[in-house]
Design a protein around this nucleic acid. Sequence first.
DNA 1: CTAGGGTTAG
Length: 743
Amino acid sequence: MLAQSKLLRLRHHHRLLPSRFSPLRRCHSECPSSSPAELTATQAVEVLHQWDFDQLRPFLFEASHHLPQIIVRLNSIPKAVDFLNYLRDKAERPQQALSYAFEGALQLASRHPNSQQHLLMLHTYRKSYLSNISLTAKSAYLLLQCLGKAQMLDDSLLLFNELDPSSTSSLISKLRGLFKSGRTHDALHLLDEMLDDFTGEVVFGELGRRDHRGRDFADEDIVGLVTKQCEHGVFPDAFKLTQMITTLCRNRKNVVAWELLHGVMRLGGAVAVEAASCNALLAGLGRERDIQRMNILMAEMEEMRIKPSVVTFGILVNNLCKARRIDEALEVFDKLKGKGEGNRVGVEPDVILYNTLIDGLCKVGREDHGLSLLEEMKTKKQCRPNAVTYNCLIDGFCKAGKIGKACKLYSQMINEEVKPTVVTLNTLVDGLCKHGKVHRAVEFFNEMKGKGLKGSTVTYTTLISAFCGVNNIDKAMQYFDEMLSSGCSPDAIIYYSLISGLSIAGRMDDASAVVSKLKQAGFGLDIACYNVLISGFCKKKKPERVYEMLEEMEKIGVKPDIVTYNTLVSYLGKIGDFRSARKLMKRMLEEGLQPSVVTYGAIIQAYCLKKNVGMAMMIFEKMCSTSKVPPNTVIYNILIDALCKNNNVEKAISLMDDMKIKGVRPNTTTYNAILKGVRDKKMLQKAFELMNRMIEDACRPDYITMEILTEWLDAVGEIEKLKHFVQGYPAPSPASSQTSISF
DNA sequence: CTAGGGTTAG
């Protein structure tokens, strides 16, 4: 087995000999009469025994590559040597025949029970009498093996140099080192591999294998070695080059990969570099969103006439999309389709390219453009839309809030006989849930189960989050169990969903139980998990459990982040422990964490709760003027509510104007707070104005709004205005119709 | 079955 593979490799090696003679291919086409199959042993021996130069002529010239087999059939080393002498002494010297005959003699020797001695004899014989003939690969291999065994380092190196004058000095010195330290076997192995492929399996194979335990070569050295080989016109094959680049990029060594590819490109150009190798580097650059270098590489490819493939453009378009540079992606795409100046690249877009682009369009909210590409695909035989195409579009329409269109696309998909996948299922389940149609989502899931499609962890995560979101914890737990029994393995995300849902619902005992399950399953809590748990324990006023969590975090090395600090500061503020809050903030700053708008909100709320609205306002103004933290809706809501409750509706109203100036959008909570304030002050006209503004701002009144307004407006006989307001129209009074005209 | 591009969940 081993011998056979070695032989195969050596056969392959022939092309590297100076003659570039390719024996196995030529025999049939050029000299059918002497094909090895037709050459019987007797015939061969007969021919050789006659030693008639004219009769031998075909074997000495056109078909000299058969000589090794013929010599082997002589079955006698002395006879083989005689034949070598005979050839050598001929006036008309057949150099190539001598090379092959010598190979035959070596083969004979290597099969001899005392092979080592006979091989050495032939080596000496060659040195004295045949030094001017070149060696075939097999000859070189056999000789090197025997010299290695004999520890004849100098002869080995001479031979090696003779064979491969371009071999690099670093490889030679490695070889020398191996011989010196007595690792003859390793040295032979190295030689073997270098012979096998002059580009050096050693060099290339090593890079492919090494990752963590990094051996003799640093990546940079490998680049040097490969480049050196290239300088001598020996290039790695496209596959190995690609593999090396992929490995380097995966180890986040884009710079080294870039150098490697450019070394080979500079020395070998399009002869040595194919699109695939460039693709590997492009993908690596894409991972770091380095579009600039990607463009440079594309330009270089064009300059060197390395023909890009459809994958090349796939990588480029994908990364342009991910960088939200969708228009540039479309430009590339149009170029492929030959739009514009007939600038055809000779690459046809395929399904994946279409899908990439459709997904990119959907992700920036241009799903209608995506839809037009879907229609275009249907007209092309080569790129029929597949499940991924529909998945991208369905997700796009779901995220755009057009659940109806998404469902329509699903039926279209079924009509076109494109089989939905589990991703289709998950996308629609998520879309339905996010639109409050959890029940429909469950129905759809059941329908798909009936069709034999199983849910995945993603399906269950979506449903569990949805049921937690509507406070139906029992149903969420039920789906968790179903997931386990259906054979899905839970991951960290699904545990997080449950823990988060239970914590928000205040069911901390259940949340803790899930934490134990999570730990049993071999997962650890991450910072997000700890944060929801801490928040839950804070809400339940269980400081001892909070400290427990914090201690655990410290023990296992999960550092509190700004969310953790905000949660704690907010809790301390609510219980009025300003001293601890201040201490905590000091530590937060020491840890290098900058206060966020949530931190300010927590402090402001704390002062508001203490009825110290003046202090709250001061902090707010300081935040706006000195920090780079822009205020958000929540902060305004806290302040507006507090000002109203403290008899300062005027100031609250001016804050609402401030919001408008700063471009902070009020929400229903904002309006509820201010409406309550103006009601308590019986400012009816102001209430109507605010109601109209609420409609402009697209804030839907909720049950709290109704509670504030109904009784009041009914009492003052303005219930009509409230009816219009609820339907989403401004009240048709003279004062308010003016506002709507100006609007 | 030699490399290289596309979709879902906290």
